[in-house]
Amino acid sequence: MEYLEAGTVVNLRVDREARAENAEEAFGYFLTNEEDESVLLHKTEIHGEVEIGGEVDVFLYQDKSGRLAATMTIPEIQIGKYAWAPVVEIRHDLGAFVDIGISKDILVSLDDLPLIENLWPEPGDRLYISLKTDSRGRLFGKLATEDVMGGIANKALFTMNNKDIKGTVYRLLKVGSFIITEEGYRGFIHESERKREPRLGQMVDGRVIEVKEDGSLNISLLPRKQEKMDEDAEVIWEYLMSRNGAMPFSDKSRPEDIQAKFGLSKASFKRALGKLMKEQKVYQEDGWTYSSDRK
């Protein structure tokens, strides 16, 4: 027996036209199940031919007025069926609205989102969800659990070590973030391996720092040592140029002064400064650093 429940696909009989009083044209059809429960299939939700007395497969959802409605557009995301859904709107009083491929966006309730709002997804991010209904039958998006993500994850080979990856954040914990990569590998980003905590649903770029025995990955969002040195050298160079090629800092400067001005440890500062000197871009004299064109 096909019960009428939002979030499911059912096969229903086309019972009669839906027509406003004195209207010449029908605005859809009423569909019924064996219990004579009926639901409206609006003409804008019809694909192909529909005949009275025939049967159609439809997806059930609530329309913008909260009434149960039917569409012949069958989304991949249903109750018990998961897929990725792009975030299209954020309402701070409600949560995140996602597009599952039908005419009405679906709400992922704020109750299921991180407590810290700046970790909520943004439009353009994506969430791996199925659907659920509350006690009043209202349809909501349901975030995938760790068990669900584990069920779809692929096992990474040890050759993935040190590879660059892209992945979507699907779970946030105090100690770190979980992602699923474009290849379908499950990864963990420890809080020490990032500059800031990524959002739920955010796509991040990282690198593999360990392939674990179970085929999951440990990921770092921090640059490699050479990349970090390049970034630090660029920061120092830009500051030097902003002062017309002379700055009162050198490898003899105090660590606290370097940290306050550049946000770098003294070791990182010296490595980056050494790189600029090796490239013959700068020289040091009497505790100052100068661009080479000032010689």
Score class of each variant (00 low, 15 high):
Val211Thr: 06
Ala272Phe: 00
Trp237Glu: 11
Leu276His: 01
Gly187Pro: 13
Lys252Trp: 06
Leu200Trp: 10
Val211Phe: 08
Arg207Gln: 11
Glu183Gln: 13
Gly287Lys: 10
Ser250Met: 04
Ala233Leu: 03
Ser242Trp: 05
Ser265Val: 04
Val208Lys: 00
Asp251Gly: 08
Arg243Val: 09
Ile219Glu: 07
Arg243Leu: 15
Leu217Val: 10
Leu264Asn: 02
Val235Phe: 07
Leu217Asp: 07
Asp230Ala: 10
Glu256Lys: 11
Gly184His: 10
Glu197Leu: 05
Glu279Ile: 04
Glu231Ser: 11
Ala260Asn: 09
Val204Arg: 06
Gly184Ser: 15
Glu197Ile: 11
Trp288Cys: 01
Lys261Gln: 13
Gly287Glu: 10
Gly245His: 11
Ser192Phe: 04
Arg186Gln: 15
Tyr185Ile: 08
Leu200Tyr: 11
Phe262Asn: 01
Glu238Met: 12
His190Cys: 01
Leu222Trp: 07
Gly201Met: 04
Glu183Asp: 15
Asp251Lys: 13
Asp230Lys: 15
Tyr290Arg: 03
Gly184Asp: 13
Glu197Arg: 12
Ser291Ile: 14
Leu240Ser: 12
Asp232Ala: 05
Gln259Ile: 03
Gln280Cys: 04
Arg243Phe: 12
Pro198Thr: 14
Leu200Val: 12
Ser216Asn: 14
Asp286Lys: 14
Trp237Pro: 00
Met241Ser: 09
Glu197Trp: 01
Arg243Pro: 04
Val282Asn: 01
Tyr185Arg: 03
Gly245Cys: 09
Ser220Asn: 05
Val235Ala: 03
Ile236Gln: 00
Glu210Ile: 04
Leu276Asp: 01
Glu234Tyr: 06
Arg194Glu: 15
Arg254Trp: 04
Met203Cys: 09
Val208Gly: 09
Lys195Tyr: 13
Gln259Val: 03
Val282Glu: 06
Glu227Gly: 06
Gly287Asn: 11
Ser291Glu: 15
Asp251Ser: 09
Ile189Leu: 15
Lys212Trp: 12
Lys225Ile: 15
Tyr283Trp: 08
Pro198Val: 08
Asp251Met: 03
Asp230Ser: 08
Glu256Tyr: 14
Gln284His: 04
Gly274His: 04
Ile258Trp: 02
Phe269Asp: 00
Ser265Arg: 07
Pro248Trp: 12
Leu264Gln: 02
